[in-house]
């Protein structure tokens, strides 16, 4: 758990400036930003050079027998194959989104640890479904 963010009191700017010892010039952060920018860019160029992005099947070609959804919607596809469309296409995604949006409220109500557990279960389920769909033939 990272305490720096949660435990730091929300002090107005003037009060912060009275404690100069905790502060370093922005350049320290910028150097790190540049380094991580280049790491990220090299990962991007690596993927671009290494993995070919396919085209779909031409609409004029013979009809494809199996059509895979893009992976971002894999989880919903997985649910759609099992449950009625209104449930897996609307209720579950919107419900999850509503839980996400009200997360600050839940943390007030239930405390941080329980909220973290709720969030973790929610995201693990969606990520898990995505992987399930991608790994299915």
């Amino acid at each position: 758990m990272d305490p720096t963010e949660s435990d730091r009191p929300q002090v107005p700017l003037k009060a912060k400036e009275r404690a100069p010892k905790e502060r370093v010039p922005l350049i320290e952060l910028q150097v790190r930003e540049y380094i991580s920018t280049f790491l990220w860019l090299s990962l991007l160029f690596g993927l671009t050079a290494g993995v070919e992005v396919p085209l779909d099947t031409s609409p004029k070609a013979a009809a494809v027998s199996l059509s895979k959804a893009p992976w971002v919607f894999g989880s919903i596809q997985y649910l759609l194959q099992r449950w009625p469309a209104w449930l897996s296409g609307w209720v579950l995604p919107l419900l999850s989104m509503a839980v996400l949006l009200t997360l600050p409220w839940w943390s007030e109500k239930l405390g941080g640890r329980l909220t973290w557990i709720i969030f973790l279960i929610l995201s693990l389920v969606w990520v898990g479904l995505t992987f399930l769909y991608m790994l299915m033939g």
């Binding site: 720096t4 963010e5 905790e22 502060r23 010039p25 922005l26 952060l29």
Partner: peptide, 8 residues
Amino acid sequence: RQIMTGAL
């Protein structure tokens, strides 16, 4: 111009 040490 300046940032908290923790941000690094």
